[in-house]
Computed example of a mutant assay.
Amino acid sequence: MLRKILMALALMIAAPAAAPAIAQDKPEGKRVEVNGMRMYYEVSGQGEPMVVLHGAYMNIPSMGAIIPKLAETHKVYAIEFQGHGRTTDIDRPITYPNLADDVAVFMDKVGLKKADIFGYSMGAAAGLQLIIRHPDKVNKAVLASVAYDTKGWQPEFIAFIPQMTVEMFVNMPFAQDYKKLAANPDGFPGLVAKLIALEKEPMAWEEDVKKIKTPILIISGDADVSTLEHSVALFRLLGGGAMGDMGKPLAASRLAVLPATSHTAVPDQVDLLMGFIEPFMKGETPKGIFE
């Protein structure tokens, strides 16, 4: 089981999704000072602004084709988090509140008063904290593979967390890939230590989630790292799950479950993801047969 989990993680990081067939202008890469680090980001596309937040151990390239696809309809600001990709590390733990505050400062630095958010995995949890801590900065959010409580992780993953060591990650293939982009090529062990500590951080945000007014599209694989029951519970906390067709408007938030999709396969389901994301962003809902 342990080896399978590590190999899945390695495949996700080492093999970015294929580029889209539609030609895209090369994204413009920039750096900005954020809370003591030099944060790298890329800007692409036109339209309403959207900030893209990657998962743990990832970077902009490893998010694959979803970024250029989003850039067909949005002006995308894809960032690289503390110690990831080309962003420098600093003497500070990686926590979800810290990541969220970094995004808020980044938005201030690049002149984004408000934006949509797309976050995956660690980036989705950071996006959820951004909504909790800085609600005025988020218009709508798409959060893929997210949890609001550590009890929502699959039992296998909960059992795996205490077994995590720096050594098992530094010997994986993506440890070498890290050096190709990193501001500090020797910084991978330190990053791993911080990310292992992040997995052990308490996470119980139910009371905060209940107060959220921001529309959120929750996306989960049906074999994701968070349980389906947890995704449904999150949807209900956001006001979803009631019966339609009874004269009341649908909830502003939505839930989508990707079939036959594990955690590491979520970002690659680009066409399926966009089929959920674009109607949500436009406020479109399917019409009932009697409408």
Rank of each mutant, 00 (worst) to 15 (best):
M1I: 08
M1E: 11
L2R: 14
R3T: 11
A8C: 13
A10S: 15
M12A: 15
I13P: 07
A15Q: 12
A17N: 12
A18I: 07
A19G: 09
P20K: 00
A23P: 04
Q24Y: 06
P27R: 01
V34I: 15
M37H: 03
R38H: 13
M39K: 01
Y40F: 14
E42S: 04
V43D: 03
Q46C: 11
Q46Y: 00
E48F: 08
M50I: 15
V51N: 06
V52I: 14
A56G: 14
M63K: 07
Y77M: 07
A78T: 04
E80F: 00
Q82S: 11
Q82R: 14
H84V: 08
P93L: 02
A100R: 00
K109I: 06
K113V: 08
A115L: 08
I117V: 07
G119S: 01
A124K: 05
G127R: 07
R133G: 12
H134D: 12
D136H: 12
D136E: 15
D136C: 05
K137S: 07
K140S: 02
V142H: 00
L143A: 00
K151Q: 14
G152W: 05
W153P: 03
I161Q: 05
Q163H: 10
M164D: 07
T165K: 13
M172I: 01
K180W: 00
A183Q: 01
D186Q: 14
G190W: 01
G190N: 03
A193Q: 12
L195Y: 04
L195H: 03
L198H: 08
K200G: 07
K200Y: 03
P202E: 02
A204C: 09
D208Q: 15
T214L: 14
I219H: 09
A223I: 04
V225W: 09
S231L: 04
V232A: 14
A233R: 09
A233E: 06
L234P: 04
F235Q: 06
R236P: 08
L237S: 11
G239Q: 01
G241K: 03
D245S: 14
L250G: 15
A251Q: 10
V257M: 11
P259C: 09
A260V: 07
A260N: 15
T261E: 00
H263Q: 05
A265T: 09
V266E: 06
D268N: 13
F276T: 01
E278Q: 13
K282E: 14
E284Y: 02
T285F: 10
T285L: 15
P286D: 05
K287R: 12
I289T: 10
